[in-house]
């Protein structure tokens, strides 16, 4: 079982920052624990930015390697997650610059295969029925596709805010942008996401509260 990222409680489970200090002092075990904690957030951010799972895995590996090299410069007073995600974001942006046109790969298609080699959950009797699950997957696919169509800077801001639950200040640090720009990106990104969903048939509700398009059906 993976440990949850952003562990802040000192006790049996060491914080990210504590592990980073141990890793800096030369403990590969400590770094391995950090990699286990952050492999999904880092990979998730990168794959949604570059939209190529194979490349994303290479970049995620590169990001952790860069983090290992740069551990000496890590300030334990700062949050490890922001520091690491900044490295991951930079790796993804570098790759996007190298490859201007990225092939569009549906991430939702990986849903079934991603748990391969991992423990499968037992069926939950209280879970939605198959139709509802299928509808939920359709919505998730539509959201993923709408997200994939956004400008990379909007996408990065939205992923960090809503995918990683970072604060505005932390996003500004990760993206190396002023706070105001981050807020603008998030606002515009949300609007662009809603427009993209509307274009895909998931229309904005009408003023009377009646929902149009596919979302209400």
């Amino acid at each position: 079982m993976q440990e949850a990222p952003h562990q802040r409680v000192e006790g049996r489970v060491p914080t990210d920052e504590t592990l980073a200090i141990r890793a800096r002092e030369g403990s590969p075990e400590a770094f391995a624990r950090l990699v286990e904690r952050y492999e999904r957030p880092v990979f998730g951010l990168i794959v949604r930015l570059v939209r190529d799972p194979a490349l994303a895995e290479d970049l995620a590996q590169e990001a952790f390697l860069r983090a290992w090299r740069a551990l000496a410069s890590f300030d334990p007073e700062r949050r490890f997650a922001s520091w690491l995600l900044r490295i991951a974001h930079n790796a993804a942006i570098d790759a996007l610059r190298r490859r201007r046109t990225m092939p569009l790969v549906s991430l939702v298609m990986e849903d079934d295969g991603e748990e391969e080699g991992r423990e499968r959950e037992l069926p939950d009797l209280a879970a939605p029925n198959p139709e509802e699950r299928a509808a939920g997957r359709d919505l998730a696919r539509a959201l993923e596709q709408a997200l994939a169509g956004l400008r990379p800077e909007y996408r990065a801001a939205l992923l960090l805010r809503f995918g990683q639950q970072l604060s505005y200040e932390e996003i500004a640090e990760v993206l190396s942008l002023p706070l105001g720009t981050v807020k603008t990106f998030l606002h515009r990104g949300r609007a662009a996401l809603a427009r993209a969903l509307a274009d895909a048939g998931y229309r904005l509700p009408t003023r009377g509260g009646e929902t149009g398009g596919r979302s209400g059906t």
Binding site: P28, F31, A32, V35, E36, E39, R40, F43, G44, V47, R48, P53, A56, E57, A60, Q61, F64, L65, W68, L107, V108, E110, D111, E114, E116, G117, R118, G136, L139, A140, L143, E144, L158, R161, F162, G163, Q165, R190, L193
Partner: peptide, 26 residues
Amino acid sequence: LALLFDALVEPAPRPGFTARVLASIR
């Protein structure tokens, strides 16, 4: 929107990712 993102699949790298990272570090 945060609730919607909660429901998105969190992509994961292939199994053995940590081992590959550590091998590259070594």
